[in-house]
Design a protein around this nucleic acid. Structure first.
Length: 292
DNA sequence: CTGTGTAAGGGCGGGTTGAT
DNA sequence: ATCAACCCGCCCTTACACAG
């Protein structure tokens, strides 16, 4: 009551519009007819000039008892409301999109988590499977003769078993060494694989060393010419390498070693897709050069 | 009683105008 | 050119009516 009395007093003092209070002391809310008339103007012009507003009061009887300042304020508030509604609508739209994206990402995350779990299990299983193969390595006798001749081609041809894989690796290594010239890229057909560049094979490339200086070999299914680019040098190889893990290593008996590596690398050809490599890395000191 | 809608107040920045 | 006065619009806030 005190506030209202003060408001009325203020209104009497300067004849200004005071806080929604009209001459009868009631809070002013415009009638439906008044709002309708104002909205009608608003749709064609949201920001009418002072002249237009005066004209509106004159030509519209229902607005006759409203002060010009009130009309100005009404349009100001009306623009403000429209802006707020527009922003709220945009935020809702954005929120819906983000919620949908969140759902997709959550699902993708769950899928990848599951995949990680499966790979971890698989990794553990393969480690277990590889363990006996190390102790059964053909160089265990240490006589230095671990070439393919020591392992008959007729046995252990299964590349899926670690022992068979190792057998194939040794055999291929012998062939590789016999063909590596240090100056040319060689294609060595993997035993048991179909011939041609699309099959798994071994590649060797010169690094400018003397003698047997070829340094890289990989078990990949790419064209030899492209492999040349990948294996040109060690830094290039490792730049694209996402992960590399040595499963087992054994001595060749002639001063070298063979390591069985599992490698994931981003293909330089496609960039986006990762490739999985089973790699045999052979290191020796022949001719004072090293073959990797 | 509480939340929402809204008329109006007040601050602020920008533009215009007239006096100096 | 400068400055005060004024107007306008935007923005934030306030206070109240009203619905649930």
């Amino acid at each position: 009551e005190k506030k209202m009395a003060m408001a009325v007093a203020q209104q009497q003092r300067d004849n200004s519009i005071e806080r929604h209070i009209d001459s009868s002391g009631k809070y002013v809310r415009y009638t439906a007819e008044q709002i309708e008339a104002l909205e009608k103007v608003y749709v064609e012009c949201s920001k009418p000039s002072s002249l237009r507003r005066q004209q509106l009061i004159r030509e519209c009887p229902v607005l006759g008892n409203i002060e010009p300042k009130q009309i100005k304020v009404w349009f100001q508030n009306r623009r403000c409301r429209e802006k707020q509604r527009k922003e709220a609508s945009q935020l809702q739209t954005m929120n819906r999109k983000l919620a949908a994206m969140n759902k997709l990402l959550t699902e993708e995350n769950e899928r990848l988590q599951k995949q990680v779990s499966e790979l971890v299990n698989e990794n553990g299983f393969m480690r277990q499977q590889l363990q006996p193969a190390v102790s059964a390595a053909p160089n265990a006798d240490g006589n230095g003769n671990d070439s393919a001749a020591a392992t008959p081609r007729s046995t252990m041809r299964d590349a899926n078993s670690p022992a068979g894989f190792q057998s194939i690796a040794e055999e291929t290594l012998t062939e590789f060494l016999s063909k590596a010239t240090g100056t040319a890229v060689e294609w060595v057909q993997m035993p048991g694989m179909k011939p041609g560049p699309d099959s798994v094979g071994i590649f060797a490339i010169s690094q400018g060393c003397n003698g047997v200086a070829a340094r890289a070999c990989g078990l990949v299914s790419l064209e030899p010419s492209k492999i040349v680019e990948i294996l040109k040098d060690r830094s290039t190889w490792f730049r694209d390498c996402r992960s590399s893990e040595m499963f087992t290593m054994f001595s060749t008996g002639n001063g070298g070693t063979i390591e069985l590596l599992y490698t994931q690398t981003y293909s330089p050809m496609t960039l986006s897709t990762a490739r999985d490599f089973w790699t045999l890395r052979y290191t020796t000191n022949l001719d004072n050069g090293s073959i990797v």
